[in-house]
Amino acid sequence: MNPAASNRLTGCVALVSGGLRGIGEAIAARFVAEGARVIVSDLDAQDSTQAQSAMAALGQEAGYVRADVTKEADWLALREHVEQRYGALHILVNNAGIDQTGAVETMSMEEWRRIMAVNIDGVFLACKTFTPMLAEAGHSRKGGSSIINMSSIMGLVGYPDISAYNASKGAVRLFTKGLAIEFAMKRMPIRVNSLHPGFVRTPLLEQGFTRMAALGIAGTVQELVDGASAQTPVGRLADAAEMAGPAFFLASEDSSYMTGAELVVDGGWTAQ
């Protein structure tokens, strides 16, 4: 239980994609601590060690459903599950994502399409699938239901050898703004905001740094960690839990007047 928990999400149902590890897992834990019932989705099998461990840690207020965010059929099955078991959805966190390292001239079309499929097609499919449920539930909350789309500081600025990742996260940023205006103009009670983490200690970051080291961009993963820490004004990488508080803010009624916004949590990296 988070010691700062205020139970301000009591009565809410939240869905967190990519929620078995890293930032997604931290967000799911914070939402449960704040009183929400949480559905976690990811690619791991239902009976996998990772899924069982995460669900044991989250407790009885959380459930897990395996789903591939690139497949519309999986989203439709997930919606049916949420409808039948919970009857409503108030918060949608589109956190699932992958990275892709490499120079543009060496990247295959298959690699390009894969990162776009996961990082932006998955966000589109989630929003398309759950908009009716979120709109219905939004009438009961100040500011309406909340969609939180996970972008990145790399959706704001360029960085060498990750142009595909830049493009996918930049697309998330502007899709968020377009959808926020669409809903607001229709007076549909759904807020849509994007969250932009900086360098965070997660399995995804470690995988990305491992690939960069293999490409010779640095000698070791630790050199990349040290370099990212040195480039960050506060002098360190973030822990995944430090993204959970900002996500809770966007999910709560404290952010009831925020939509189409980008919340940057990067230790000052993009302020330079």
Rank of each mutant, 00 (worst) to 15 (best):
R8H: 11
G170Q: 08
M188V: 12
R141G: 00
V172L: 08
F209V: 03
V265F: 08
E242Y: 11
K169P: 03
N166C: 13
G24Q: 01
V13S: 00
L92A: 03
G235C: 13
I120P: 01
A261H: 12
S53Q: 11
A26T: 04
A184H: 04
A214C: 10
N95Q: 13
A238Y: 04
L174M: 15
A45K: 15
L9C: 08
M1H: 15
D47P: 05
A228S: 15
D266R: 06
G102F: 13
D47G: 08
T101F: 03
L76P: 05
G18P: 02
E253I: 07
Q272F: 10
T232H: 11
A56M: 14
D254R: 06
G11F: 07
F130A: 04
M133E: 05
F175K: 04
Y165N: 07
P160Y: 10
M1A: 14
L174S: 10
N2E: 07
G24L: 04
W75I: 03
L89G: 06
L205H: 04
W112E: 02
Q207N: 12
S252D: 06
M150V: 11
G158I: 01
R21S: 12
M1N: 11
E110M: 13
Q100A: 12
P3L: 13
F31H: 03
L179I: 10
E83Y: 14
G235M: 14
Y159T: 03
T10L: 15
C127G: 02
Q231P: 05
P246Q: 07
L9K: 00
W269H: 08
Q46C: 10
E80D: 15
Q207S: 11
D121G: 11
L156K: 11
A171Y: 10
F209H: 03
T129L: 08
D239L: 11
I91G: 01
T176M: 12
A26W: 02
L92Q: 02
A29K: 04
G155L: 05
T202E: 01
R30F: 05
G235I: 09
I217T: 05
Q84Y: 13
S256C: 10
V104M: 13
Q84P: 07
G158M: 06
P246M: 11
S152E: 06
G216A: 08
E25L: 14
A244D: 00
A73C: 09
K128R: 15
G35D: 06
G178A: 12
T10M: 14
K71Y: 08
A230I: 13
W112G: 01
G19Y: 02
S168E: 01
F249R: 06
L20Q: 00
Y64L: 08
E262N: 14
T259W: 04
V32S: 06
K128C: 13
D266G: 06
N166S: 12
V264D: 02
N119H: 13
G198Y: 02
T131G: 08
E80Y: 12
A103Y: 07
I190F: 09
E105W: 15
V192E: 04
S108M: 09
S53Y: 09
L20T: 01
D161W: 11
S145T: 10
L224M: 14
V40Y: 04
A184N: 07
V82A: 05
A135Y: 12
A244W: 01
R30Q: 11
L195E: 03
D44K: 09
F249D: 01
P189G: 09
G87C: 13
R21W: 03
A241M: 12
N94Q: 11
A117E: 10
S163V: 03
V192D: 00
F248M: 04
L20W: 00
T270M: 14
V65L: 15
D121M: 11
